[in-house]
Design a protein around this nucleic acid. Structure first.
Lengths: 208, 208, 208, 208
DNA sequence: GATGAATGAGCCTTCATTCAT
DNA sequence: AATGAATGAAGGCTCATTCAT
């Protein structure tokens, strides 16, 4: 796994750093979502964070750092949501169904944030961007694992080299729900969408 | 269908306007793809277009106009590619297979451009953004129609209210190939990807 | 008298030059009055004149030339108005009364133009500016002469070295009516203003 | 009285704002007088003010704000000059004489600035322009009051509805001295001018 | 003579970042 | 640690003027 990038700070106290950076993230997420990264000024970020521009720069080195902080926090949020969904001691098929449903629920809640990552990731320095994309891959890996488990316990019919693709297909379901919302929502609720897509996938992966 | 936004120009000759705007689009696409809209300067655009900044502004009214021009051209490109793929006088199922393959080929060729639209669309003024999104919906409609045709001629089994979702799923295939390329390409070529996804869809829509 | 500045033209035919310059002046006066010299563009001038920007520059050498043309035309207008007012074969006192009345009428009609000169004269090149100011002095001279005549024919009591000042005072009456119109018009009509100021002056210059 | 327009500043300390704005005004007055508002660049203003362009914009919001600041300061200067001239406990006639003399002295000292206001006021946004013109009316009001006092204490003979006009005439004296200086100074010193005009007025307003 | 496309210097303004307090 | 005034590079855009057709 890629090394989490650590941003230097002028401040010594790690507790304080964490606290301030949470303030920064909370403020910046809202701003980036509503105005975009480029149209948000550092002054606005500091003001919304509750301190001065000088203080902001005690905890970051550049505006891009804020974007990184934000992207990282969003990913952490998605991952946390996914972990909560995991039920152990059940078949892969059952687990998959739960995971899809949970995943879509999380994506629904975080739609603006997820969109944000896709729209602004290019503004990150190459190296940092790679780290964020790696996070993305972790989520795919999460579903890969479930598919493998189902394969092993016989609850899912899927051949080895389709696993990856299917995992991608599932993750894309989430992105689809956030990216095409302006269109999908006219026709489906989250529940309908989840049900239809899940049944499509399970029909494919089971004997019906 | 939404009205194509027409951008005023100081220049009178329509032929010249078209020619110059093509130059602008060609130059700007490259720049936007590699640096993003915000980090590209109008001066860079004019230089890459082969004329001065003053001349650039004879053909547009603001930098945002360039983005619109670019988005519009990209959509036109995708649509043109799709039209070329349409074969008449065949069953819906056959047509669908060809359309998916053609669509993915176009998306593969235009991947950077498609990505660009998704990343910069937010920078467009509300009204213009709506127009671009409407274009997107047209592409979904294109697949809806094919599905309907297959439904009518009996070559595809799909119930009425799944048509829209399935059309979305197909279009998302294209976006997936552009958005997740950094990951998908490690495991699949375009041909493999196309084949696997097509068979998944057709298996679902036919009796096998 | 200062030499009227002659503006070179690319065009040979003097008739045409005059005709075109009249078009230019007519268009520019309106524009300068409503937007000011600096905020009016040469393109606007050419458009309002009824020809292209290229043609405009066939008849002038710079934007400042247009301002000069305009100022010159305005002065000519004022002078023409004054000439028409002159009645011969009457006493200086009678002539003065008529002249003041005529002068104020002209100033009232041309108020916007007169204001224009005062506001934009500074934008003229030094040399040209001097010429325009000289014109101004001619108008003062006009009243000086009338005062002298009245002095000579005994209809006005005024000593030699007050003549100039009084002439200035009269001319200033006209400027006053244009400059302070936003305030004066609330309290006086042109007729009232004329009558009151005239009686003030005549009371001073005659035995009553 | 119109509300003084308050210009927002990015800087919090009011003392500093006042100090910096004084620097700005001082620098801008000179520049505007010698080159005019439009030909003066914001960079020149900041440089002449002793700080960077960025700093300039910490204290104003637009170039027009500088013009407003300047006009406002000039009016304040004239008003201050007038206040200092007021002598109490004397007759209206005596007071008037002193006021005229003081007013003309102030106008003489501030001639360039007064001229500036008349020439550039049109560049101010409508609302702001109205405020500046209102200030102008205050000065007329100042003389109206003196005339009324003289009327009441019997030291001046003037009928009610001539008061306003006479006040205007007096103020115009000041403008005249600044506007026509290129001509008047050839013939009169400030003292001569003052003496002659004052005697003209007092002769009219007293029994001689 | 008329046209209008092309030019580019130059303008106003913004904003990420620094640093003295 | 926190503050916020200061900085100036850089950006979007305008417009007087030219010149080939």
């Amino acid at each position: 796994m890629e090394q989490r990038k650590s941003i230097p700070s002028m401040v010594k106290d790690p507790k304080l750093i964490e606290k301030r950076r949470e303030q920064i993230i909370e403020a910046a997420v809202e701003l980036f979502i509503s105005k975009g990264f480029h149209k948000t000024t550092t002054r606005e970020i500091s003001r919304a964070s509750g301190f001065s521009i000088g203080t902001l720069y005690e905890y970051i080195e550049s505006k891009e750092d804020v974007l990184y902080l934000v992207c990282d926090a969003i990913h952490a949020g998605v991952e946390k949501g996914l972990q909560e969904v995991l039920v152990n001691g059940v078949s892969g098929a059952v687990m998959l169904e739960a995971a899809i449903e949970g995943f879509l629920r999380v994506m629904d809640q975080m739609q603006d944030r997820v969109l944000l990552i896709y729209q602004e990731i290019k503004s990150l320095p190459r190296e940092t961007m790679r780290y964020v994309l790696a996070k993305e891959e972790e989520i795919t890996g999460f579903f890969e694992e479930i598919l493998h488990r189902g394969r092993r316990d016989g609850s899912l019919q899927i051949d080895e080299n389709s696993v990856k693709l299917m995992a991608h297909n599932i993750v894309v379901l989430g992105e689809m729900w956030t990216f095409r919302r302006w269109s999908l929502r006219k026709d489906y609720t989250l529940e309908e969408f989840t049900k239809m897509q899940t049944s499509l996938i399970l029909r494919e992966l089971t004997d019906k």
